[in-house]
Each structure stands twice: as structure tokens, then as C-alpha cells.
Design a protein around this nucleic acid. Structure first.
Lengths: 225, 225
DNA sequence: TGACATCTTTACGAAATCTTTATAACTCAA
DNA sequence: TTGAGTTATAAAGATTTCGTAAAGATGTCA
């Protein structure tokens, strides 16, 4: 199998160098762009398997690059952001970013997220039965099983869980979840989410106080895994 | 035994070719149609054992084809859909689709779903008698027995029960049930369902107050098991 | 026509679910 | 350690959905 190819779009040479060394030593092929414009051209001329995009770029803001990319590019885009900029992260996720990392990041985490994003994008097939650990969701029969035992979920609980499962491993923002389940005008009702995530955890988690499936991403949203 | 025959209705030649190669190498006979209209004609002149239907067809929408097919064709119809079009999938299932796959799909999964759909349809076909716990339904003779004792059901009650039994374990939405039993224009008359489910439960359940066969899925529909 | 079976409609209490509120627990940085 | 911001949990209140009985409507058949 060929090496997976990763495009880095970041204006800081040190960061690019650091990423390059880490990624190449883990058997990825690396392409670099120091501006958003250059990144767009490179990705169009030879689409990479994954893009690492700094959201704080100087020429065009990273957000614009993200939107332009997403008009045609549907492989993973992982956002790099300085810490303490949750608004950036949330809006990037809402605009189709696959995942995010805050600088400075641990390389172990970086590699793990890259692996997971690439794996998911290769398994694009969208099952009508989704299995995730001890949880199994039959989207046609509308049945959820845990350790092969059927669970009783209300309609909203089921819809929420199904949405999570279809986006396994990916952070879903509060806004996105609310919009998908309750509708456009409910995007501020985050308390609904807390309540329903709570009841779901009671039903699907071994230990609801230490959830393994529905993980909280504070300030951003939730992640199902 | 003869080869099972599969009709592909899809406007993209590459997809048809891909499917054809995979299916033929797994000992299915393949017939192809590039438009919905052609598919309807072919299926009518020589009914296949299973239909693969692209929901995003150009001439008539796949949804219309599905509806027309389901007026007389009761073998499996598996929907092919592009990813991320949940509304399409849900409405296809409501209109009687057996299962669905999103493009791009892994061929292993495709074959598994085809096998499973054909197996199920042969069961209900050859047996013509569906057994479910203490309930036994003879679809040819239109006779229902409970603990080997014949039950007296009205025509509507029987139709409803037979529809449930053919979809054992699967949640059937109010919409779907109403459309199948009463017709397209009755999709909002959920009260009919309550009344008839009530009388059915009195006849087939050990304890109608705690139904084991016809389970209600609040806000969604009912499930037979 | 009238008896009978069946279907449709209405009404209302019961049950399930959703929404809201209150409060506790947690997290992170000053 | 405190305090602001965020999240979790429980429980009360509101709303929706469901089940049942029964009355009215329709149709069938002798």
C-alpha cells in the first residue's frame, strides 16, 4: 500500500518542520504550504489523503480556506488552533472540519487523531447496522442492542444516538446536534442536550459517571466512540 | 437451483458495471436498466428476485419508481443512495424499501445484504406460514392461530397483523402502516391504528395490558415480535 | 327492511415523553 | 483557593401520545 499523503497548511515554519519530522517518521508523505492560497492550489492539483489546516492564517483566514476546500474536498481536514479560541474551533467544526487540535499539541495525540480520521474516511460505507463496542444500532429496524440485549429508547434518545453513531469518533458541536435533532430554532437549548445525553449514558454506558461512548468535549460538544 | 436474478436500476454505467461484475462472479444473474422507466418495464415483463434501485435517478425520481414497484412487487428492493442523504433513506424505508446501502459501498457488505434479503424473502414465500411464539399466520389461507386454535379476525385486522408479521422485529411507522393498510391519503389517521392495534391485542396477546407481540414505540409506530 | 358485522369517529383518562427549573459537581485559570 | 463558566443530575411541570370504550356510520345479506 502507498503512503498516505498529508498536506500541512500553516504559516509558521517551525510548526511545519515539527509536523513534517513527526509525520515522515511515521511513514506519511508530507506536503507543505505556507499560505492558504498555496494550500488550495496544492490540494487541487494533487488531492492529499488528509489536510492539517492552521485556522489562524494571515492571508485568508483559515475559515475561508476551510469553506473553499469543503466545496469539493471530502477527506479529513484537521484544524490546528491556538488554545482558548473555542469560537474558532466550534465554527470550524460546524463548517465541516473533521477534528481539531490545540497548539501546543502532543505528537502522540496528533498521530492518533490522524490515524483515526484516515481510518474513518476509508470506511465511508454507511452501514444500516452500526456496531461500536458493545453497542449495536440497526438503523432499518430502529433497534439498539447492548451486549446483544435490546434497549428501550425513546424516539428522541434514539435519534440522538443514531446521529452520534453515524459520526463515530467525530466531535459534534452543540449547535449541530441541536439543529439536527430539534431543528434550526433550537440551537441555543444546550440544556436539552445535557438532559438527553444524561439519559442516554444511563442506558448505554457501563458506568454512566465515567462515560466511554459519549465523551464530553467541554465548550465544544460531544464525541461518540 | 436456478441462479437468483437481480435487476439493477441505476443511471451511472460505471456503477452498473461494477455491480454486474461482482454479482455475476457470485453466481447471480444480472439484468440492467439505466432509467426508472426501463426498470419498471423490465421488472414487469420478467420479475427478478431482487431489485437494486438507485434513489437518485434522473428521469423519474427513485422514490416514484419505488412506489410504483411496491404496488405489485413484493420481493426485496435494496436502495442505493449517496451518503448523507438521510431524508431520502427514511422516506425510502417508509415506502417499503427492504434495506439500503450508501455509495461508495464495500462489495462484501453489498453481497451480505443481498444474501440476507433473498433468504428472508424466500422464507416468507415458501413457508407462507409465519410463526412467532404462540401465533401462527397462514398467509395463503389467511388463517391465524394462537396455540393451535384458530382466531376470528376481521379483514383489516388480518391485513394489519400480516403486515406486522412480515416485518417481524422491525419498527413500522404510523405513516407506513396507514399507507399500506388504508392507503396513501390516510397517513394522518393514527387513531385508526390505535383502535385496530387495540382489538388485535385483545385477540392475540396473553395479557393485552402488557403486550408482548405488538409493542408500541411511542411517537414512532409499532413493532411486532 | 332489519339484523349483523365491521369500520369510523369522538371523548377522556392514563401513560409516556419532553421541557423547564433548581441545584450540585466539575474544570480551569487568576 | 476562589470564582466564573460549563456540565451533570434529579425532579417537578407541561405537553404529547396512547389506549379504551362506546356511539354513530356504513355496508352486506337474507
Amino acid at each position: 500500500m502507498n503512503k498516505a499523503e498529508i498536506l500541512i497548511i500553516d504559516d509558521e515554519p517551525q510548526i511545519r518542520k515539527l509536523l513534517q519530522i513527526n509525520l515522515e517518521s511515521n511513514d506519511y508523505k508530507v506536503v507543505q504550504a505556507s499560505t492558504g492560497k498555496e494550500g488550495l492550489i496544492l490540494s487541487a492539483s494533487h488531492p492529499p489523503d488528509l489536510i492539517l489546516l492552521d485556522i489562524g492564517l494571515p492571508d485568508k483566514s483559515g475559515h475561508e480556506i476551510l469553506q473553499e476546500l469543503r466545496e469539493w474536498y471530502n477527506k479529513p481536514i484537521i484544524i490546528l488552533s491556538v488554545q482558548d479560541n473555542e469560537t474558532d474551533i466550534v465554527s470550524a467544526l460546524d463548517n465541516g472540519a473533521t477534528d481539531y487540535l490545540t497548539k501546543p499539541f502532543r505528537t502522540g495525540e496528533l498521530l492518533a487523531r490522524i490515524r483515526s480520521a484516515i481510518r474513518r474516511s476509508q470506511n465511508t460505507e454507511n452501514n444500516s447496522i452500526i456496531t461500536c463496542g458493545d453497542i449495536e444500532i440497526d438503523l432499518v429496524a430502529r433497534i439498539v442492542k447492548r451486549n446483544n440485549e435490546a434497549l428501550k429508547l425513546t424516539s428522541t434518545e434514539y435519534n440522538l444516538l443514531a446521529l452520534f453513531a453515524k459520526n463515530e469518533g467525530k466531535v459534534l458541536t452543540h449547535q449541530y446536534l441541536l439543529k439536527e435533532i430539534w431543528g434550526y430554532s433550537y440551537q441555543t437549548e444546550t440544556q436539552y442536550l445535557r438532559v438527553f445525553v444524561g439519559t442516554l449514558r444511563k442506558k448505554i454506558e457501563e458506568n454512566p459517571n465515567n462515560p466511554q461512548h459519549i465523551v464530553t468535549e467541554s465548550g465544544v460538544g460531544y464525541r461518540f466512540q
